[in-house]
Structure formats: structure tokens, C-alpha cells
Design a protein around this nucleic acid. Sequence first.
DNA 1: CGAGATTACTCTAGTGCCCAACCAATGACA
DNA 2: TGTCATTGGTTGGGCACTAGAGTAATCTCG
Lengths: 168, 168
Amino acid sequence: MPPREPEPDPVEWVRERWEEQGLPEAGRFAAAASLMRAHAVAIQGFEAALRPHGISRTAYLVLVTLQLSPGGARRLSYLSRYLMVHQTTITQLVDQFEQRGLVTRQPHPTDRRTTLAVLTKDGRALVKRATKDAAAAGFGLDGLSDDEVSALTGSLRDVRRATGDLPE
Amino acid sequence: MPPREPEPDPVEWVRERWEEQGLPEAGRFAAAASLMRAHAVAIQGFEAALRPHGISRTAYLVLVTLQLSPGGARRLSYLSRYLMVHQTTITQLVDQFEQRGLVTRQPHPTDRRTTLAVLTKDGRALVKRATKDAAAAGFGLDGLSDDEVSALTGSLRDVRRATGDLPE
DNA sequence: CGAGATTACTCTAGTGCCCAACCAATGACA
DNA sequence: TGTCATTGGTTGGGCACTAGAGTAATCTCG
């Protein structure tokens, strides 16, 4: 029985075909494909850690943002901009949080248009538990050395700079 | 009027608070946050280039995969595994492709369970046009130097190895 | 002060993808 | 050869997020 042919890395497979057929920007396509795959697998581990707590990734990020904010409070519009998700998503998430008693809506003291999302005691407890589990899963990046984590963050900063995600 | 305070990089802001509060795995969390942001912004540019062609990112990847495959044909199950999307998604996409005349379903010559997706002439033309536009947008990675693209792909390969996305 | 632009939030509708259940065909093996 | 697990594909339902429009409050500037 012949040794099983080693199945190639999908990214390298596509890069070779891409070049063979003379398509443009092979390196950039391979990088984009890598980014999508790496994101997909990392997200998978991340969300698996959150699932037992009954919250999605975006929901977790909202709660963490509140946790790290002064008084556990932020305007809904801030959350939308900061996390790069649609305003509607924030409205719906805060609805769910309120029903579960994790967050309360409070009027802004001076601007009557805006409402604040404020983390409750229960919300703070939940985000603490979820963070423990997510950290144990390395936030989807388990298995990388500290050096690799640093290099990754640096390369991704290049991407974010090039696409205007970094201030200045 | 005082100079406007430079608003910090959201990733660095969260890393600092994270460490202040003694939360675990600050570096890994910052890397995961970077990955999500970089993915979000890159995807945005990528999909913007595809939108005029009326196809989503996954739809484009399916069509490209067919284009690069022998005879422009692949089993649906292969597409699902290769692109890491749910079988159901492939079924639905191929439904839409058939309606638009981009792909036809054909029975597998020997295995009567499986059906093949085969790229039509129109499908081939569309993917060619879409690739032209997507490449012009650098597949969402416009503005990165070739060296940065290489470094990025390498760092992402680390992630994919650590999470089991690479063969072996 | 007052008209128009802007900002903040919400509602309804829609898209993209996944989950669970299902049937048909195939393969493994006693 | 017959049984049972596995693989391949489809269906209906559901979740997360977005799109576009609508209302209310605030800001800008003549």
C-alpha cells in the first residue's frame, strides 16, 4: 500500500494554482486567505469557550468593554464605534442583557438623546467567569509561543495601519 | 484651545486596562482583538470589491475554487471541507449559482450519492471579472508592502499550525 | 432666536451562515 | 450476504448581524 499522499496546505495549494494561471496578486490573495482561515479557527476556539456562558463573541466584547470602563458604563454609540459593529446590534444585545439582568439602561445625565449601558453585579460576575474560560483557551490562540503572539500582533498592526484602523 | 488628545489604538487601550485589572493573558487577548479587527477591516475592503458583482465573499471563494480545479468541477462535500463552511451553505450557494447560470449540478460518474458543481462559461467570466476588481483592492490588504504581506502570512501560518489548521 | 444639519437610538426587514433531522447510497465486516 | 455505521446532500428552522428608515434631542451658525 503506497504511503498516503500528504494533503497540501489549502493556502499553498491555491497560491500555486493562482500563479500557474497567471492570476494577479498571488501573494496578497494567499495572505488574505490565511487571514480568513486563521480568523475562522481562532474564532472557533474562542466562541467554544464562551458558549457555556450563553453569550456570543460580540456580546462578550461588549461586556468586557463595560467592565474595563469607568463605572462599568458606556454610551451605546461608543460601543458601536469602538467594537465596529452596527448600532442595531448594540441595541439588540443590550436588550438581551437587560432581560438577563446583566446590564441596565440609564439615561445620560446631560444629553437626553443618549442612553448608557451600565454593567450590573451579575453582569460583572458573568464576564469574570467567561474571561476565565476564554483565557484558558488562549482566546483561540492557544499553542502559540509568546514570541509568536508578539509577532502576530505586529503583523496585524501593519494590516490595521494600512487599512486605516489605527488612529493618526 | 488645547490640542486634541490623540485617541489611542483600541487594542492598546484594552491591553492597558486588562493589565491594570490583573486579568490573565493580556498579550493573547490583545492578539485576538487585533486578529478580529484586522479581519474586519480587510473583509470590508474585500467584500466592497465583490459587491458590484453580486456575490458574497464565500460565494467568490467557491467560484474561485472551482475555477482552479480540474474541469472547473468539485464535489459539494469537497467545497464544504476545503472552505471550512457548513454543507448547508454550499447547498444554498450552489442553488443560487444555478439560478444565475454560473454553475451546474452534475451527477458524479461513479458515486451516485455525490453531485458535482461545475463552473459554466458565464461563471468563469464572472469570477474573472470579480478577481480583477478584488485584486485591485489588494483583497482587502491594499497598502501593505510585499515584505509585510510575507511576514503576515508567516505569522498567520503560526496560528494555523497551533490550531490544527495545517496538515500533519 | 431659529432653520438645517448632525447625533443617538430604535424598529422592521433581510442576509448569511449554522444546527438538527432526514433520506439515499456506499462501505466495512461478521 | 445482510447488517450497521458512514458519507453525501437537502430541508426547515434559528441565530447573529446588517440595512434602511423613522423619531427625538442636540448642535451650528447666520
